[in-house]
């Protein structure tokens, strides 16, 4: 089974190293730098898991999350945040986010978490 991951962050460098990290682990990775591009990629790329930054210019992570979950309720979304504002985290959880992770990222933890989400998807299907 091909593991597909979509990375959404307005910082291109972050997308880049995450992409190389996950490609190294046999993931197929797509990236997007804003909310609208992310929604397009969800349609085109059909990812299993999305890493979604909360703070982005234009449509922010929470709005993007809501639209993604509206159209693809089964999609696993892990929120990535630079600032742990409890309100935003709560809001994300309420909107159906599957987990959140704070920057700077621990890749070890992230890898494990993404794998968990893929495994849980495999179980359902």
């Amino acid at each position: 089974m091909i593991k597909k991951l979509l990375i959404v962050d307005d910082e291109a460098e972050i997308c880049e190293f995450l992409k190389s990290f996950f490609e190294d682990r046999d993931f197929k990775v797509a990236t997007a730098h804003n909310g609208i591009a992310a929604l397009e990629q969800v349609e085109r790329f059909q990812p299993d898991v999305v890493l979604l930054d909360i703070q982005m210019p234009g449509m922010d992570g929470l709005q993007t999350l809501k639209k993604m979950k509206d159209t693809h309720p089964k999609l696993k979304v892990i929120m990535v945040t630079a600032v742990e504002t409890q309100e935003k985290i709560e809001e994300a959880m309420r909107l159906g986010a599957d987990n959140y992770i704070t920057k700077p990222l621990s890749l070890e933890y992230l890898e494990k978490d993404v794998q968990d989400k893929i495994d849980s998807l495999a179980k359902i299907s």
Binding site: E11, F21, A82, K103, L105
Partner: peptide, 27 residues
């Protein structure tokens, strides 16, 4: 703190991320 966190955590994430990518390289 919120402002700094946003501005600083992103570069920190890149620095730390790239180092981790190298550390956890397979092959």
């Amino acid at each position: 703190a919120a402002g700094i966190a946003h501005e600083i955590h992103n570069p920190l994430a890149i620095i730390s991320g790239k180092a981790q990518v190298l550390l956890m390289q397979k092959g």
